[in-house]
C-alpha cells in the first residue's frame, strides 16, 4: 500500500483530533463525575489507537524501517506506546484509571508535536539493522509510558492532599495513589535499566564498546541513578507522601531531559535522528 506524505500528515492530524475528543470526554467525565463520559472516552481512544496503529504500520512499510529514525516517527510511536501501555496496565491494575487525565493529553500532544518535526523519509544506516536496537528503543518507550502513569499518580496525590471536595475525591485514597506511583516508578526504573543494557549490547555489537560516556548515555545513567535513589529512599528511609511525590516528579523531569532534551540539544550520536 502506497501512502503520500500529504495523506500521512492529514491522517495523523485526524488521529490527533480523535485523541483530543477522547481527552475532552475523559476529563469531562472526571470533572463532572460522569462514568458514562469516561466509558465513551475509552471507546473513542480505542478508535484513535486503531487508526494510529494502521498509520504506523503503513508508514513502516512505506519507509522500510520501524518508527525510530525521524523525530516524527519517534514521537508518534512514543504516543502510541503511552496509550497502549495505559490500557494494558488499566486491565491489570484498574485503580490507575484516573491516570488517563494525564496519559490521554500526553498522547495527543506527542502526536501533534511530531507533525511539527518535518515528517519525511529518513534513511536507515546499516548499523541500525539490529534486533538490539528494537529492544533498546522499545523498552525506553515502555519506560516512558510507565513513568507518565507514575507521574500522573504523584501529581494527583499532591492535588488531592491539598484540596478537599470536587472531582479529586473520586480518585483512590491518598495511600493508594502513593503506593501505585511508587510501584509504577519501579516498573519504569526496570524498563529503563534493561533498555539501557540492551543499548550497550547493541553498541558493543556495532562499535566494539559497550559504554562511551556519550551525553545521552550519561544522562540515561544519571536518570537511572536518580530513580535508584528515589526507590532507595522509599524502601529504606520510608520516604512517602508529598515528599515522595515531589521526588518522583523531579525524576520524571530528568527522564524527559534525557529522552527529548539531550536528543535535541546535545552533540550525542543519539541526537542524529532529531536533526
Amino acid at each position: 500500500m502506497k501512502m503520500s506524505l500529504e495523506l500521512y500528515i492529514a491522517s495523523n492530524w485526524a488521529v490527533v483530533i480523535v485523541y483530543v475528543l477522547a481527552t475532552i470526554a475523559n476529563v469531562s467525565g472526571a470533572l463532572f463525575r460522569k462514568d458514562r463520559f469516561e466509558r465513551i472516552s475509552y471507546r473513542i481512544a480505542w478508535v484513535g489507537m486503531a487508526l494510529h496503529t494502521g498509520l504506523i504500520a503503513v508508514w513502516w512499510a512505506e519507509v522500510g524501517h520501524g518508527p525510530y529514525m525521524a523525530p516524527n516517527e519517534v514521537l508518534s510511536s512514543d504516543a502510541w506506546v503511552t496509550m497502549a501501555s495505559y490500557f494494558v496496565f488499566l486491565r491489570i491494575y484498574p485503580r490507575i484509571r484516573p491516570a488517563s487525565v494525564l496519559a490521554f493529553p500526553a498522547t495527543f500532544l506527542m502526536l501533534a508535536l511530531s507533525m511539527f518535526y518535518n515528517p519525511g523519509i529518513r534513511t536507515l544506516p546499516a548499523t541500525f539493522r539490529s534486533v538490539w536496537l528494537l529492544i533498546h528503543i522499545g523498552l525506553y518507550k515502555i519506560a516512558l509510558a510507565t513513568l507518565v502513569i507514575a507521574c500522573a499518580l504523584a501529581i494527583f496525590y499532591l492535588l488531592k492532599s491539598r484540596t478537599e471536595g470536587g472531582w479529586l475525591q473520586q480518585l483512590p485514597s491518598l495511600e493508594t495513589l502513593d503506593i501505585y506511583s511508587y510501584r509504577f516508578a519501579g516498573f519504569g526504573f526496570i524498563f529503563w535499566t534493561i533498555g539501557m543494557l540492551a543499548g550497550s549490547i547493541w553498541a558493543y555489537q556495532s562499535w566494539g564498546r559497550f559504554w562511551g560516556w556519550d551525553p545521552t548515555e550519561t544522562w540515561s545513567l544519571i536518570t537511572c541513578l536518580m530513580f535508584g535513589a528515589y526507590l532507595h529512599l522509599r524502601r529504606f528511609f520510608r520516604l512517602q507522601g508529598p515528599y515522595a511525590a515531589w521526588a518522583l516528579i523531579v525524576c520524571f523531569i530528568i527522564s524527559l531531559v534525557t529522552l527529548f532534551g539531550m536528543a535535541t540539544l546535545s552533540g550525542s550520536i543519539h541526537s542524529e535522528y532529531f536533526k
Partner: peptide, 9 residues
Amino acid sequence: ILLLAGLMY
C-alpha cells in the same frame, strides 16, 4: 548514588 550522579552531570 547522588555523588556519582552529580559527577556525571
